[in-house]
């Protein structure tokens, strides 16, 4: 019998993409997909570690009121799970140590960098070294962008992917680093999972709108050195059906294709089937 892949999608406190993310997990073949409110984890009734695939969806944790996922990451660091004294973050680290997959999209990505889950150098998943800040335009933006997966990427989620069109929908998506050394290391260790590219040339772009936020090195998503943890600003879960594509009526995504964002979820499920 094949292994059962169990996915958890967290929600609560302002998360709002949990339903389509769960849908993507289901279509990708996960055997069990549960949308779980953070309060169910905090009161001890659900444990993240009982799952294999942790989905951190987009949204506005605490309204992004102190900065995107600032207060959210603070909660992970300080809120304790009833009965155990364990911090939410501790359970997350336990999950990572056990070999689970983590996919953070948009606000989920912001949460991952702000807790320090990414880039996760040297098994340190608690130090903030990179961040996501206000778009250069100072504006929230909803538009579709073209992204490319670097050939040498270690990321499990983007395996077999080359170029993909996805929507971005954020105000704070500009990827920045603490210093050049961090950026060099991310590049050298092939932790860049996705880059914004010019749709005409396929080359990484620093220019709006191809690069919608001014991210350094056109970075749209990164993974940790194991490739099992990935965060990205674009929304693959919002491209699960061909009618999601902005130009499907022009035949840009054919009726026989599935939404290209699903591939990331399929990769996750496939990887887990092989490794569980």
């Amino acid at each position: 019998m094949k292994s059962q892949v169990k996915a958890i999608v967290t929600t609560g406190y302002g998360t709002n993409c949990e339903r389509e993310m769960a849908h993507a997990c289901r279509v990708a073949g996960a055997d069990q997909v549960d949308i779980v409110h953070l309060s169910d984890i905090l009161d001890g009734s659900v444990r993240i570690t009982d799952y294999h695939f942790l989905n951190l969806p987009g949204g506005f944790l605490d309204g992004d009121n102190l900065g995107a996922a600032q207060a959210g990451s603070h909660r992970f660091r300080y809120a304790r799970i009833a009965g155990s004294g364990q911090r939410l973050m501790d359970q997350l680290l336990e999950f990572v140590e056990k070999g689970g997959l983590v996919l953070g999209i948009c606000n989920g990505f912001q949460l991952m960098v702000k807790t320090g889950l990414l880039p996760g150098f040297d098994d340190n998943y608690q130090e903030r070294l990179v961040s996501l800040t206000w778009n250069d335009t100072g504006r929230f933006v909803d538009r579709w962008v073209t992204c490319r997966v670097p050939e040498e990427s270690r990321c499990i989620f983007t395996r077999g992917m080359d170029s993909v069109e996805l929507p971005v929908r954020h105000g704070e998506g500009k990827f920045v680093v603490q210093d050049q050394a961090i950026l060099d290391r991310i590049e050298q260790e092939n932790l860049v999972a996705l880059r914004y590219v010019d749709p005409d040339t396929g080359e990484p772009s620093a220019e709006y709108p191809a690069n919608p936020n001014g991210s350094v090195n056109a970075i749209a998503g990164i993974c940790d050195p194991t490739g099992r943890l990935m965060g990205l600003m674009p929304h693959p879960e919002a491209f699960h059906h061909f009618t999601n594509h902005p130009r499907w009526t022009r035949g840009d995504c054919s009726r026989n294709e599935e939404g290209a964002g699903l591939k990331m979820f399929r990769n996750a499920v496939e990887y887990l089937r092989e490794h569980l």
């Binding site: 709002n16 339903r19 504006r139 909803d142 929507p167 929908r169 919002a238 999601n244």
Partner: peptide, 14 residues
Amino acid sequence: VRQYDHEVQGGSVI
């Protein structure tokens, strides 16, 4: 229009 999220919930068709 661009400053409003018109695709959240994943059901955007037009």
